[in-house]
Amino acid sequence: MLEGRKAQFVDELMKQDSTKAQAEKEVNLCIERFIYYSGWCDKFQQLYSSVNPVASSHFNFSVPEPTGVVAAIAPQQDALLGLVSVIAPIIAGGNTCIVLASSTKPLCAVTFAEVLNSSDLPGGVVNILTGKVAELVPYFADHMDVNATVFCESDSAIQKMIKEKSALNVKRVVLYDKIKWADATGQSPYFIMDFQEIKTTWHPIENIGGAKAGY
C-alpha cells in the first residue's frame, strides 16, 4: 500500500524540504523497513525464547509477550522514515500504539494513516495524533493505561519529564535519541524487544527418575 502511493509520499516529502532524490530514497527505505519488520512478526519469539534447564522436576520456559499500549513521540526530523521505524517494531511485536507525528512535518504522517487504513490494519492498533510536542508529551507520559513511552529527541528537559511522569505507573521508557534511522543500525529485532516482557511458565513433570509421582 505504501508502495502504491509512493509518488504522493515523495511529493509530500519534497514539500517538507527534501530533494527529489532524498525523498525517493526515504520512501523506498520505509517500504523496505516495513517488509523487514513484517518478516520478524513470527520469528523474533523463537530467537528470544528459552527453555530453562531448572534443577527441579519442572518444565520451564520463557517467551516474549507485548508490553501493551505504547505511547510514542515520533522523530521530528525523519518525518516519514522515523515514524515508520518507530511504529513497525512496536506493532510487529503485538503492541498497539498512540503516535505523536512530527509537529513541523506532519503531512506524511496523515497520509501514512490513510495507508494503514486501506491496509486493513485493525482499528486502534495504530493511532496517529498531530500537535505540539511540548504541549502533548505530559499526557503521553502520565496516562495510567499506557505501558511504555518512546521519545526520539535529545531534549534533556523533556526526557527528564517523560521519565518522571512515567514513574506514575512504572512505564517502560525508551529513548531513541542517538539512532540514525537511515543507517543499517536503524533496524533490528532488538527494537522489537524494547517493547516486550518476558513471561516464564512453570509446570511440574511427573515422576522424574521414578522418585515421586504427581504434582
Binding site: 534447564p53 531448572v54 527441579s56 511458565t201 512453570w202
Partner: peptide, 14 residues
C-alpha cells in the same frame, strides 16, 4: 512468572 500446578518455585536459570 506463572506457576501451573505448582507455586513459588525458583531457579537460577529461570
Amino acid at each position: 512468572v506463572i506457576w501451573a500446578n505448582t507455586f513459588n518455585k525458583f531457579d537460577p536459570t529461570s
